[in-house]
């Protein structure tokens, strides 16, 4: 029977209380959000924290979706299901609805949180790629205040983030750039999994801003294929200012693949993952571009 080892358990009454508890228990304390990554790891005893600080009660402070300051702000405790159901999200970021539809399964999505997903920092995590494509940022709070970290600097390695012991991820911010200089925006997420509900073998998210027939800007996020910071920066650079043509997108796919360092595992060998990096980048870009051109299609 796989069951967790012993630990101390504390319910946080507020964010500041959570930070206090984290400080009290030190290095070996962990935040408990939905628990859908942490508890399976604890059952298999791959994680053995000494204390858990349960933040599920902090819905007032951490569970919200709102637009403010030209950004979509997502509280860390928002669940996958809420992100999927939110019209506000769909209105601005079709990519997130695409991604949420293929993350885990409906029951897991009911309880798994966005903050937990990012902090778990699994190299195959889907939202990390989506947020990288959208060039979002994360708000990390400690007892001395909070800082804003660009999505692409959030992860420091597999299963590692900039969130230090004693800190909390509180919010994800996604810049809403529609309408800027007449640029039209579209985004999309594509994932290949061995089966519904499985983690990606490879996945790509794309956000594109069109100015006439030119690509004004693009964001490309990649999951599970060994992309630095979950992103394909060289491909984005190439696209900036490039003609909005299939050829450009194909070249971007090639560049994305070239800069990946895929690790073979049971989901697939390295050459296949590299191939997916290219193939899925192109597919995500194609859909994103189509959506940019036909804005109604951006709202699934």
């Amino acid at each position: 029977m796989q069951v967790p080892a012993h630990f101390e358990y504390e319910k946080a009454a507020s964010v500041s209380h959570a930070l206090l508890l984290l400080a009290r228990y030190g290095q070996d304390a962990r935040i408990l959000a939905g628990g859908h990554s942490l508890i399976p790891m604890m059952k298999l005893r791959l994680a053995q924290p000494e204390a858990l600080v349960d933040i599920n009660g902090l819905t007032d402070e951490l569970r919200y979706l709102r637009v403010s300051g030209g950004e979509l702000r997502i509280g860390a405790l928002v669940t996958h299901a809420q992100l999927l159901e939110s019209e506000l999200v769909g209105q601005h970021f079709a990519i997130l609805h695409d991604a949420e539809q293929v993350i885990a399964d409906p029951i897991v999505r009911n309880w798994g949180t966005i903050g937990g997903s990012l902090c778990q920092a699994d190299p195959s995590e889907d939202l990390s790629a989506a947020f990288a494509a959208l060039k979002g940022s994360m708000v990390v709070q400690g007892r001395d205040g909070s800082r804003v970290v660009p999505a692409r600097e959030f992860h420091t390695g597999p299963y590692e983030t900039v969130v230090a012991p004693g800190e909390l991820l509180t919010e994800i911010r996604l810049p809403i750039r529609t309408g800027a200089a007449g640029a039209r925006h579209g985004s999309a997420y594509v994932k290949v999994a061995r089966r519904v509900g499985d983690w990606p073998v490879g996945a790509a998210g794309a956000a594109i801003w069109l100015s006439g027939d030119t690509i004004a800007d693009a964001g490309i996020g990649l999951a599970a294929v060994g992309a630095r910071n979950f992103a394909a920066a060289p491909a984005e650079e190439f696209l900036r200012g490039a003609p909005a043509s299939t050829q450009s997108l194909r070249r971007a796919g090639q560049l994305a693949a070239e800069h990946c360092q895929p690790v073979p595992d049971q989901r697939g060998p390295a050459d296949y993952k590299r191939h997916l990096a290219s193939e899925l980048t192109v597919r995500a870009l194609v859909t994103a571009m189509r959506r940019a051109r036909t804005p109604a299609a951006g709202r699934p």
Partner: peptide, 21 residues
Amino acid sequence: TPASVWRAIQGRPLRTDLAAS
């Protein structure tokens, strides 16, 4: 699997009983 189908198309079929490399 997607990987094994793709590799078959490439003419380099996978050994499906052993760890992928």
